[in-house]
Design a protein around this nucleic acid. Structure first.
Length: 414
RNA sequence: GCGAACGUAGCUCAGUUGGUUAGAGCGCCUGACUGUGACUCAGGAGGUCGGGGGUUCAAGACCCCUCGUUCGCCCCA
């Protein structure tokens, strides 16, 4: 059975799966719009620099997970691994500094060369919300509120929890980072191999280590709170207060850090335990240093990304697909009239299919399989009298309806 | 990238310590029923047992490699 297979880590979205994902996007899009976030899109690939410069050369994504290739002109291109960098690049490219706050929603495929697992694929899809050019805590609150509202609307709010932390401003973060490096450097012999790596690349990550030895060290490690300057503390307090005012439950998680270099202040994740190791449904934070890193004027920003596959797996309350009406011509004579009838009914906005294969029994079976609301039988008898036989497939009752009134009658059945 | 488990029909799965022609349920097709679906009954199609190599008189089963999936780590949505 060596049929052609999709590339590892990629998946076909058959209609049923597609409908689930489309629902997630649709709910998110509508909710974002309520908050004043308009939808946009950026190209699926960018110059490699866009991601390398914003995410940090040492991040896992940049160092080992990017799908990069050389274009025919010899420039290095990369399939986007996330949306934020592309949107920020777009913000700069289009000179949108005058339009702040620039509030946008986006959705689309992302690509990361990772080991696939449940809820983790090489091509996956994200919804994304960004608010660029607003330094106020109000923006953090708004952005998080959108996420909470979407999760609620998708019916997954009770399966996940909001964890939140602050990384402080650049000054605070740098001070804390130095303190951590100093502390852990004194205990290098007790650190796990992974954490030795983290010590160079992202020491904050050690705080989140699952290694039991590391955890003992972490308990005595310097506390971030002691290194936050008053501005950072006040900012975070304002964010938390806003969330409380909105009734958005949240848990302070001092070990919540971000792998990407450009994050400052607020970092948050809506996490679930329903998806194994892939707990993050929506994650984001403030990235006040990003636009500048890309070569734009210093501009603050905050946003998040949500995994569509992960959300689709947990979402409930999908809208049922519209049920069709099945037109069944009985006998060769009525096929032409059935064809035009189907056209007329569709013209009036109804969902209509024609069952034209096999004997009438087969056609009825077909109608049943299509989950049709009713079957419309059209034979010579009926045609002669300008009527059709309408069979309600739920009730099993059949009656005659004049062709003139059919569209209206069917519309009333929906 | 590291560690482990799994891969039998379209789907969900049986298949004994290696032993003739690999099974079931669901689904699909045909008919009973050439103008009536669901329920029922009868029949049928569909498998190089993920792929390749090896051991053996004999491999779906044992060994090696490979591809894929799943779980954990790393990291992340």
């Amino acid at each position: 059975m060596s049929l052609p297979q999709p590339v590892r880590g990629t998946h076909d979205l058959l209609p049923e799966d597609y409908a689930r994902q489309a629902h997630v996007i649709s709910v998110a899009r509508n909710m974002a719009a309520r908050f004043g976030y308009a939808e946009m899109a950026t190209p699926i690939f960018e110059f490699t620099e866009v991601f390398a410069r914003t995410m940090g050369e040492t991040s896992d994504v940049v160092s080992k997970e990017m799908y990069s290739f050389e274009s025919r002109s010899g420039e290095s291109m990369t399939l986007r691994p996330e949306y934020t960098a592309g949107i920020c690049r777009s913000f700069i490219s289009n000179g949108l500094q005058q339009n702040v706050p620039f509030k946008v929603f986006a959705a689309g495929p992302m690509f990361r060369y990772e080991r696939p697992q449940k809820g983790r694929q090489r091509q996956f899809h994200q919804i994304d919300v960004e608010c660029i050019g607003a330094p106020e805590a109000q923006a953090d609150i708004e952005v998080i509120a959108i996420g909470a509202a979407i999760l609620k609307s998708l019916g997954v709010a009770d399966k996940c929890a909001l964890q939140i932390n602050t990384l402080g401003d650049v000054e605070s973060r740098q001070a804390y980072r130095n303190a951590l490096v100093e502390y852990f450097s004194d205990h290098k012999d007790k650190l796990s191999e992974d954490s030795l790596n983290r010590l160079d690349r992202n020491p904050l990550r050690i705080l989140d280590s699952k290694d039991s030895g590391d955890r003992i060290l972490v308990k005595k490690a310097p506390e971030f709170t002691d290194y936050l300057n008053s501005f950072s503390k006040d900012f975070f307090a304002e964010v938390l207060e806003g969330l409380s005012l909105l009734g958005i439950d949240h848990q302070l998680n001092r070990r919540l850090v971000r792998g990407l270099d450009y994050y400052t202040h607020t970092a948050f994740e809506f996490v679930t335990d329903a998806l194994g190791a892939q707990g993050a449904l929506i994650a984001g934070g403030r990235y006040d240093g990003l636009i500048e890193a890309l070569g734009g004027k210093p501009t603050p920003g905050i946003g998040w990304a949500g995994g569509i596959e992960r959300l689709a797996m947990l979402a409930t309350g999908l809208p049922a697909p519209a049920r069709p009406f099945a037109v069944i011509p009985v006998g060769a004579e009525s096929e032409k009239r059935a064809l035009t009838l189907v056209g007329e009914l569709r013209e009036s906005g109804l969902v209509v299919e024609m069952a034209f294969k096999g004997n009438v029994g087969k056609r009825m079976k077909r109608a049943n399989k299509l989950n049709a609301r009713a079957a419309i039988l059209l034979g010579e008898d009926e045609m002669a009298r300008n009527v059709c036989s309408l069979k309600d497939l739920d009730a099993g009752e059949q009656s005659e309806v004049s062709l003139k009134d059919l569209a209206e009658t069917l519309a009333a059945m929906n």
